[in-house]
């Protein structure tokens, strides 16, 4: 028999309708169904959620923090995307 550990799942919880799911932590489970049950028992013992997503940690594709300045660089010189970039005279209203 193998002594391999159960896979790791990341847990995302919607705390109430109208809000998006938010990362809560992780759990180990043998399969998807157990991951949902373990996530419920671990992260929502006090009705912290109305919906749970679980996803195998090894299935998540993430950006690399070491490359983050290069990765996010394209947005940095585009200040004109922000409303404060534009000078509008004070007397103009509703703009």
């Amino acid at each position: 028999m193998t002594k391999q550990e159960w896979p790791l799942y990341e847990v995302f919880i919607r705390s109430k309708s109208g809000l998006s799911h938010r990362h809560a932590g992780s759990v180990h489970a043998a399969d998807d169904e157990m991951a949902l049950n373990n996530a419920r028992d671990t992260y929502t013992r006090r009705t912290e959620g109305v919906s749970i997503w679980v996803v195998r940690s090894d299935q998540i594709v993430a950006s690399d923090p070491a490359e983050s300045s290069a990765f996010f660089e394209p947005a940095e010189d585009k200040v004109y995307r922000h409303p404060t970039f534009y000078d509008i005279p004070d007397e103009v209203e509703n703009l």
Partner: peptide, 17 residues
């Protein structure tokens, strides 16, 4: 549950459960 939150946090540092 507290033990599990903490094991989960430690695992992010590259040590297995």
């Amino acid at each position: 549950g507290h033990g599990l939150y903490l094991y989960g946090a430690a695992e992010t540092l590259g040590v297995s459960r």
